[in-house]
């Protein structure tokens, strides 16, 4: 036959379902059930020429804020996890994982030098380029702060390109707050407004705001006509956040949300993440709200 047989190496990189091994550099406990892992490509296993090369087929891949990877633990399984590191430093892959199932529990139990498989990055990104010149309001609930952190890094790295930046963060209790040290650092800066609240706390452990994250929205400083809002958290939290942002006269096309759905492939083949006409894995996870408004108000879509 006229079709030449391709060498095996091309077959490997051409199959988007094959993970690439990464080594755990560091594991940091964020909360009792949430851990942040730093990973580094272990490219030698596939004979890739240089570990610092970026792009398709190489061990290190540039990512955009808001994108996610599929993390595979040998023999246990694979889960979609958003990237929570700095997009300017793609050579260290950072993932914050909450232990809620078999695979995430095993990932949270990983130790330095152990190996995890990575596929990605996948999905749409926060509109950090489109938002240049605007005020930015970021609303995060619980572990929803993790997929927003790359956007925060980007905004702070390019601070002069944006107007006012407000970060509003709500956690269930003070113990459930992610990135506490960074939050206090950001709070200490004069060029970002950081407001934090918890749903419930004992007086001896917390002196800050108590209440749901939507109560912070009235405090954020922004010009509604020139603002981009980035929202991530549980769907019910996003629903009420959008209502509050609409009250502050933001239009639906100024609001971006990040959706969560079951995913088995991340490349639009398995069908699990369908959300109306969208595949959350490739059309999302970040959606401009006006594009999904009709679906968002309906149950069990």
């Amino acid at each position: 036959m006229a079709v030449a047989v391709k060498p095996q190496t091309i077959e490997i990189s051409a199959d988007p379902m094959v993970p690439v091994p990464y080594r755990v550099l560091r594991v940091r406990r964020e909360t009792p059930d949430t851990f942040t892992l730093e990973l580094e490509a272990l490219t030698s296993a596939f004979g890739h020429p240089s570990p610092v090369q970026t792009g398709e087929g190489s061990g290190v891949r540039a990512f955009a804020p808001g994108q996610f990877n599929m993390l595979y633990l040998f023999g246990v399984g694979e889960v979609p996890i958003s990237i929570s590191g700095d997009p300017a430093q793609p050579e260290v892959l950072v993932h914050t994982v909450r232990a809620v199932g078999a695979v995430t529990r095993a990932i949270c139990a990983l130790k330095r030098d152990e190996i995890v498989g990575v596929r990605g990055p996948f999905g749409s990104a926060w509109p950090v380029a489109e938002a240049v010149g605007n005020d930015i309001v970021i609303v995060a609930g619980g572990v929803g702060l993790a997929p927003l952190r790359p956007a925060i890094y980007h905004l702070l790295n390019h601070r002069h390109e944006y107007g006012r930046v407000a970060l509003l963060y709500g956690a269930r209790t003070p113990k459930d707050m992610l990135y506490k040290r960074e939050l206090s650092e950001w709070r200490g800066r004069f060029d970002i407004q950081v407001e934090v609240t918890v749903d419930a706390a004992r007086p001896d452990e917390w002196r800050g705001n108590v209440g749901v994250v939507t109560t912070l929205i009235s405090r954020a400083n922004f010009d509604p006509f020139h603002t981009t809002a980035l929202v991530c958290g549980p769907e019910v939290m996003m629903r009420f956040t959008i209502l509050e942002l609409q009250k502050r006269e933001l239009r639906d096309d100024q609001i971006y949300i990040s959706m969560e759905r079951n995913m088995k492939c991340a490349i639009g083949f398995c069908g699990h993440c369908q959300y109306g006409p969208n595949f959350v894995c490739k059309d999302g996870p970040v959606f401009r709200f006006d594009k999904v408004r009709e679906l968002f108000g309906k149950r069990e879509i």
Binding site: M17, K264, C265, C270, H272
Partner: peptide
Amino acid sequence: CFCTTVEDVTDLTGTEAERVRKWD
């Protein structure tokens, strides 16, 4: 209809693993 799921399994020794795709 094209939907699938994947199952990640190991052998009893834990040294060999496999990913199997199945209609879902």
